[in-house]
Design a protein around this nucleic acid. Structure first.
Lengths: 110, 110
DNA sequence: AATTATTATCGTAATATTGCGATATTAAAA
DNA sequence: TTTTAATATCGCAATATTACGATAATAATT
């Protein structure tokens, strides 16, 4: 086992979970925050900034790219990674749609 | 390796990532949605509802309990799991605080 | 063309997660 | 008190994730 049974869940559930999952590692949270603060980014800066090897950071960047939340454009010798503003807001909205479902408490737990 | 280097990240980064991680599995998303729709819940219902073994569901419930997002109260032979409304809203706010950081795009990627 | 700098990919080791059967545990019901 | 029902925990196998060194790929610089 160790294999998530995606086929038994709805597309929405799989979609939401896969998004949450990408944000579910402190290195990726840190990378996003760093890009936001710098207003731009080069992978090599991250190697100095975070205490992770270059290969590891490149791997995390790949996962962030996989959902499209960041995109890289080649800038001479290096790559400039930026956050996709539109998708950033859209994902926030998807998360909010999930959290805005009404949670009504029944007597049993209150 | 395979061990996340938590010590190199800030408490906030670790906190956020650990929250996201719990939501990062479709079974746990499904469980939360089910509890919300039912307005209450018993684990055994979930075994019928989702296509997962009882042991597996119990494990996912444990992870949800670990961050306090659900709580169980014993109801006779079974356990009634409910969502902690306050924490639900608080986590939503924590996520929003993260997403509300201003993402300013620089020329290089636009 | 050779060198240098930056990033990506490969291969691998260590650890984590997912899933489930088997077996406790707990509490009501018979 | 035995049985039954519901949930939790244990132990294990399969797969995924994290991390990193080594190496490849790419593009500017010399």
């Amino acid at each position: 086992m160790g294999l998530t049974k995606s086929e038994i869940f709805t597309d929405e559930q799989n979609r939401l979970a896969s998004l949450f999952k990408v944000f579910g590692h402190p290195a990726r949270v840190a990378i996003l925050q760093y890009i936001i603060n710098q207003k731009a980014c080069i992978c090599n800066d991250l190697v100095d900034e975070l205490g992770l090897a270059q290969a590891t950071i490149s791997q995390h960047l790949k996962e962030l790219k996989s959902i499209g939340i960041i995109q890289g454009t080649i800038e001479g010798k290096s790559v400039c990674y930026c956050i996709d503003e539109k998708l950033w807001k859209q994902i926030q909205e998807e998360f909010n749609a999930f959290f805005n479902q009404e949670v009504k408490v029944i007597s049993c737990c209150s």
